[in-house]
Design a protein around this nucleic acid. Structure first.
Lengths: 342, 342
DNA sequence: TTGAAAGCGATACCAG
DNA sequence: CTGGTATCGCTTTCAA
């Protein structure tokens, strides 16, 4: 296994020069650099990142903490992050931290992330507490939250409240008045979580239309999955009487479940029930789902961009793009929403 | 940032003893060990994995190469692998290598994996060529394939051919004779790929029943996604005449798309069309899909088990469990298959 | 059981 | 622009 000394010897230079030539840091005569590079190629030299990390303190490795891999939104984000990191020459170390898995979670933060294996952390859809941030901070590892929050950490996200508000307004403008919301887990309990913000946006839009919901029967919480949405929608639509004419689902997957439940119950969409989702899921078009698109893969890309800036910074101010403006979203109207039937 | 020297000093021992006490390798008096551990805890000592790797050559890190993150099967496998690795104290470095992304792929193998950052590689659903294996081999990194193949590497997989055969037989036994197959991409071109093996199993079962397909019209290749299955099924079912009465889909997602297409065309499932999938997707129950389950998360777990054995081995023979028997699968009959209508 | 010292493989400072 | 050398933090002989 050739080391840099071998390269140096073969090229007839010192290790120092070989290093400079290979890393590109420091000045080396063009001719020398070529000789070194040739030598390296010839013996198949590959630098040891461990040795380099040991002295530089940088690992060219970013950690990603994510609550699910197998949910569309998170999978897209992860792919986006991975692509961008690889493109920048960084490795991605994956930590799956599902909600409620507190033991696994503290293990990740106190054992894995406390070591110096990563240069930074991207936390996707997770709220970090002070202790967790402190662990990273003490080691000078920048933290970037995508979607979630962490005390004192950089943060990138869409405006969840505004998005839910817009979704609701879309239905209101169509003439609906009996609108229900399928909220994510913990929406009522954690007002600053993604489900909480979306629920808030829904309520705000309803209130602004003078439709303060009597009782909470028209908000049902559900896991943000298709079977979750299916079950919740059955519950919501099953009883006749004051059945809603429209549903704001907290995610496209929940919306798909809702459409499926409607079908099961013989309720026509959009004739008898309008459904709007949030996400821009890749299946939305196929199902004709009206939704508010966000762009998770692109979000992953941007997150990497920001985090690399955070790593490289010489202490510039806020490295967030667009001075921290929310990430872009877009309403896409399809065939799952229409005016309520007379 | 405390180093092992600090721990040693505080505990009143040498670095050597501190190291032995902390790593558990080598004999240390019980009393001494406790003193060292106390000292370490007191100053918040955390070992530098880089320094350790530099001398041991082990990184406690396993690379995972996977073609998709955002497809149910692969997401499950990835979660299973992650959980098992973390449980064993290993980091997981993720490399997403989509089919056809040859540039990205060679970058991963020749740049990222050629370095000594990982102790082993798990390749999920990817075939590796000799060069790619050689890169790892030369560095003594074991390779384990899950689903795919690599020359000379350990391999774990279900029996794809038998699975497709069984799926087809299920339909045959129900009395179907006009059975179509929605195959994965490259099924005809690459007989040893997963889609290829499944296609083969389908054809074998058909031939065994004396139903050698006239023409290839009853095998359509499609991306293994729901929209893919939808489009392919529209094409397959759209023309009346010799429309099949049953479909073997190469995956559950394709099966879902097929069911959706049938619905769109007003074809009743299972009355006019039986559909069987392969995977055991978490939505299968909700859609009433008959399928052959495999257990991707569990497969991930087993893969980790094997790969850790590969890393640790003192050159024992075949470290595959069950002497290389195929991974378990199970037929689950639901409401998407029935006897053909008279 | 413990300690002293020799590396592991690179980078970076300081001279020249 | 280039070379010598200290250094990063740990593990591991080799002796005691």
């Amino acid at each position: 296994m050739p080391a840099i000394g071998d390269v140096a010897r073969l090229a007839g230079v010192s290790k120092a020069t070989a290093s400079r030539a290979l890393t590109g840091k420091g000045h080396v005569a063009e001719a020398t650099r070529r000789r070194v590079e040739h030598a390296a190629a010839e013996i198949g030299y590959i630098a040891s990142p461990d040795a380099a990390s040991l002295v530089t303190g940088r690992t060219k490795n970013v950690g990603v903490v994510i609550p699910f891999v197998n949910a569309w939104f998170f999978g897209e984000v992860l792919e986006g992050i991975e692509r961008a990191l690889i493109g920048a020459g960084y490795d991605l170390t994956l930590y799956n931290v599902p909600p409620g898995g507190d033991d696994a979670r503290s293990r990740v933060f106190d054992f894995f992330l406390a070591r110096k294996r990563v240069d930074a952390l991207i936390a996707v859809g997770v709220d970090l507490d002070e202790h967790e941030v402190a662990v990273l901070d003490r080691r000078d590892k920048p933290v970037l939250c995508l979607g979630g929050r962490a005390p004192g950490a950089a943060r990138l996200s869409i405006d969840d409240r505004a998005v839910a508000q817009l979704a609701t307004e879309h239905l209101l403008h169509l003439g609906h008045t009996r609108i229900a919301h399928l909220a994510g887990p913990g929406a009522a309990a954690s007002p600053h979580s993604v489900p909480g913000e979306r629920r808030h946006g829904f309520l705000e839009a309803m209130a602004a239309a003078g439709l303060a919901p009597g009782g909470r029967a028209n908000i049902v919480e559900t896991p943000m999955t298709m079977p979750g949405g299916y079950a919740a929608a059955l519950q919501l639509l099953g009883q006749p009487g004051m059945r809603p004419t429209a549903v704001v689902a907290c995610s496209d997957e929940v919306a798909f479940g809702t459409m499926r439940a409607a079908e099961r119950l013989g309720i026509d969409v959009p004739g008898e029930l309008s459904v709007i989702g949030i996400d821009g899921h890749e299946h939305a078009e196929m199902f004709g789902l009206t939704t508010i698109e966000q762009y998770p893969e692109e979000q992953g890309r941007v997150a990497v961009e920001v985090v690399l800036r955070l790593i490289a910074r010489g202490d510039e101010p806020d490295p967030l793009p667009d001075s921290g403006a929310p990430l872009p979203t877009r309403l896409v109207v399809r065939s799952s929403t229409s005016r309520p039937r007379r």
